[in-house]
């Protein structure tokens, strides 16, 4: 069952309302004839925050694409919401300064960008008003109101990330898939966006699955960790998964997890090299 986040025992985990949002049973994925990972079991309910961890090239992003329905599974079963019920933030998406589209337009495309034809003026006014309200609401919920009308290329990395998060949230998804959303942000922005994600997760009951390179910024908000390595996966609460014993078993090589005095986790002796140079999982 759901474990309490390590240092936020005061915040009650939300009750699982009905069926799980997402369920993987014995899932496996092959890319180019090579099995990337197999035997992954995972059940995620509404309002749960899950991190996908592991070394580079292990198939973390592929896991998200599989959940999206964009990559096929080789074995097992996946039950995920439909495309319209998923918000998706791909990896390392930045708009350079030359992109002359406002943030609000990018958010709006999340709502109606897939529709064909043009909106007819003076028709469906009520619906258009409702859409406008929804767009403003989504932008406000991520705190991006102040710069939503600026060209998105002129916004900073953190501002762009909030606008893109608003775009992913604008359809009120049940499941939010994020691929290293904190990667290009500085430390204060990392913890701010992590807190924002935690709040969206708890308050709006959105299930969040996030590929992370460094678990520490989101550690306080996590319910569950999927740790991929050596073609296998371990799933469970972070304090059970990110331990010397579990990771040593997973890697089949001695791995040590250290805990700093301020509660950060550092994994030492991981076979794969960490490219950030910072305290990694």
């Amino acid at each position: 069952m759901t474990a309490q986040p390590i240092e936020q025992a005061a915040v009650p985990a939300p009750a699982h309302a009905g069926a799980p949002v997402l369920q993987l049973t014995g899932a496996a994925v092959r890319v180019g004839g090579r099995t990337l990972w197999s035997g992954v079991d995972l059940t995620i309910g509404a309002g749960e925050f899950t991190a996908v961890l592991g070394p580079n090239g292990v198939g973390k992003s592929t896991l998200l694409k599989t959940l999206l329905g964009a990559a096929p599974t080789a074995a097992g079963e996946i039950r995920a919401p439909g495309r319209t019920e998923i918000g998706y933030l791909p990896q390392r998406r930045t708009f350079d300064a030359g992109v002359r589209i406002r943030g609000i337009d990018v958010v709006r495309l999340g709502l109606d960008g897939h529709r064909w034809g043009l909106p007819v003026p003076f028709l469906n006014r009520a619906r258009r008003r409702a859409e406008r309200r929804r767009i403003d609401e989504a932008i406000e919920s991520t705190g991006a109101t102040g710069y939503a009308h600026r060209p998105i290329g002129e916004c900073s990395g953190g501002e762009q990330q909030r606008l893109l998060l608003a775009q992913a949230l604008v359809t009120r998804p049940r499941l939010l898939l994020l691929d290293e959303p904190l990667d290009s942000l500085d430390l204060p922005n990392q913890s701010a966006v992590a807190a924002l994600l935690g709040r969206i997760c708890r308050e709006d009951g959105v299930a969040v699955v996030m590929v992370a390179h460094d678990v520490n910024p989101i550690l306080h908000h996590l319910d569950r960790v999927v740790y991929l390595a050596e073609g296998r996966a371990v799933t469970g609460p972070p304090r059970e998964v990110i331990t010397s014993e579990t990771l040593t078993r997973l890697y089949g090589a001695p791995v040590e997890v250290l805990r700093t005095t301020d509660g950060r986790l550092v994994v030492v002796g991981m076979p794969d090299e960490c490219r950030s140079g910072g305290p990694c999982c």
Partner: peptide, 12 residues
């Protein structure tokens, strides 16, 4: 044009 990957994920 502005957001290729997300558009593809939404079925465009």
């Amino acid at each position: 044009s502005s957001d290729r990957e997300v558009a593809a994920a939404r079925g465009v």
